[in-house]
Design a protein around this nucleic acid. Structure first.
Lengths: 346, 346
DNA sequence: TTGTAAGCGTTATCAG
DNA sequence: CTGATAACGCTTACAA
């Protein structure tokens, strides 16, 4: 049993030609005779040859690898973005190295460093909650690695960006609530340091402004975007304050926490209090009552992100103009915000 | 602005020493003077040096990279396994390349090939639904790449394996149902070609055998593990057949589909018909009624998988004995199967 | 404690 | 259409 992998040298030797010819044949170079190519391919298969991407990358100075940093892989939104990215990058011959920042800027820095060390062809990144400084990302850019920001972006970096149109998503949602007759609203969401939550609040605020209501004067709760945070907060809030007509949540998870708290008090949704979420997690259509939310087209976002990156990689001179793509979200109206009992299904 | 990345040669030149010394200093080699090390580190930082993993991997014949194949990344179970794997592999200096087979054996083969081409140090794989032949995996093994199977395993391959104890998980669950007084059960699950579903059915069947019931004689539905499949099936089944007392589902998603169908008929859970799921998806504790399920400790499974791989990588001579680890699941009893109305919370 | 030199497997360039 | 040669950046015997 042989221990070593076959190389192009081995193929060359068995055929009495040189390694360069083999290399060219394997890469389907136009100037190689059809017959030689076929010989090479045949012996490659016979010798169980597997190309060594590492050697090739070293020689070419670039790896056929793209790095992708996500805050958390187990969020449905992000895993769908990943799937979208792969659907474009794999056919183009690139592999994905996925890193999780776990919402920590320190891990994000480490991720960037390993990706630079791996000489990836590009980096896709959605910022962690802690990321307010961007030196590490500039560092990658200085190393001539194309960077594309997606979802959680920032103004300070001059790179391609793919963004959800959170302002309009949240605006449409709030319009719907207004049309249903709700006025005494309450906002719950993540801290407004992240573009995502700033924008969702802005959409909410804009829609309310149109009917002369100042969103800042309505109740607001901002905290970490988790079921537990919202649940704990709501449990006491509901006892000590007048009931809002509708809770507008910037996250399905927070909405879910609120729902549990509301139902524990014996209140009915939407009769006693209505509620909406954001980002249309799979459970939104499954829970009782079904939750009104906003679909973000995460897979499409991944595809756009990957396409932008491929554009950056192929353009030799880094193009001056950095594109910015907006993904339009779609309002999904379900039971939890409907006053009239005409119910849409899953 | 310089275009090229700094190399150890650059550091060597600025310090008037050789590249080998720099290399050794950077790797904290014991025989290098403390003072030289510090000089090297300082200039490395000054020159903005980033090690080139590709060159290092080529030289060493191994990449500090591990390949991981998952059927689907957007399943909570799998993304948690990934998190577990990373929690062990990253600190050990390895990067993860994640590939999705999307339940297709063809994609799985392609994944294996790119991973071999990337000269990964090891491959972690959970088989796709279509995988009944294993030539591609043996191919990786022949190339001396350590392979560890997790979750969806098979007997034919002589490698390390990490498995969920599905038999006992399902057995405990069925015991609980029996204790609640249910007898007229119905099984819904995935096709029994995969160890996962065979085993879950076995646990169910064993528990019933103990009280003299033949599971094969009770109603059984097997299909693809999705909400939609179960929903469509149940919608007609419930109309045309006597109601079972409890539906035992091998998957939370299928259980969810059944629940939607049941509730659409105006039947109450668990009063008219009880139901249980498997794998404790996040929504299981959120839906109404809360769903009895089985927690699988996916993150721990990932950690065990990674540890086994590290063991294989470090042992020069591939150890004859291939370990097999069982992860014990835990029954989570919730409202959906409780006859007496003593309700446990999330 | 440091230097010398060879080589990992490819591919770009130049020459023929 | 194919060959010869050098080089990508790093590590590691071996030598000093």
């Amino acid at each position: 049993m042989r221990n070593k992998q076959a190389t192009i040298q081995d193929i060359a030797k068995t055929l009495n030609i040189t390694a360069s010819t083999v290399s060219r044949a394997l890469n389907d170079h136009p100037k190689i005779k059809k017959s030689t190519k076929e010989l090479v391919w045949a012996t490659a298969k016979k010798l169980n040859y597997q190309p060594n991407t590492i050697a090739s990358s070293l020689r070419k100075g670039k790896a056929n690898t793209v790095g992708m940093i996500v805050p958390r892989i187990n969020r449905h939104f992000f895993s769908n973005v990943i799937t979208g990215v792969e659907s474009i990058l794999n056919p183009a011959g690139y592999n994905l190295i996925i890193c999780q920042s776990e919402e920590s800027i320190e891990k994000e820095k480490m991720n960037i460093n390993t990706l630079i060390a791996s000489r990836v062809s590009g980096i896709l990144i959605s910022l962690s909650l802690e990321s307010t400084k961007y030196e590490h990302i500039k560092h990658a850019i200085r190393n001539n690695i194309p960077v594309v920001l997606y979802d959680r972006i920032c103004d300070e970096l001059d790179v391609c960006k793919v963004e959800n149109d959170d302002v309009s998503g949240s605006y449409e949602l709030t319009r719907h609530l207004i049309e249903q007759g709700y006025r005494k609203m309450m906002w719950i969401g993540g801290t407004r340091q992240l573009n995502t939550y700033t924008n969702r609040f802005a959409g909410y605020s804009n829609a309310l402004a149109e009917i002369g209501i100042d969103a800042e004067k309505l109740p607001i709760f901002e905290g970490s975007i988790s079921l537990e945070t919202a649940y704990e907060f709501m449990k006491t809030y509901l006892d000590e304050n007048p009931l809002p007509e509708v809770i507008v949540s910037a996250s399905d998870y927070m909405a879910m926490g609120a729902i549990v708290a509301i139902q524990e008090k014996g209140l009915r949704i939407p009769e006693d209090i209505a509620i909406s979420g954001y980002s249309n997690e799979p459970f939104a259509g499954l829970i009782n009552p079904k939750l009104t939310s906003v679909e973000q087209f995460s897979k499409e976002m991944g595809q756009e992100t990957a396409r932008l990156l491929l554009g950056q990689i192929s353009s030799e001179i880094p193009s001056k103009v950095k594109q910015k793509i907006m993904i339009r979200p779609k309002l999904i109206v379900r039971e939890s915000t409907i006053k009239s009992k005409i119910i849409k299904s899953i």
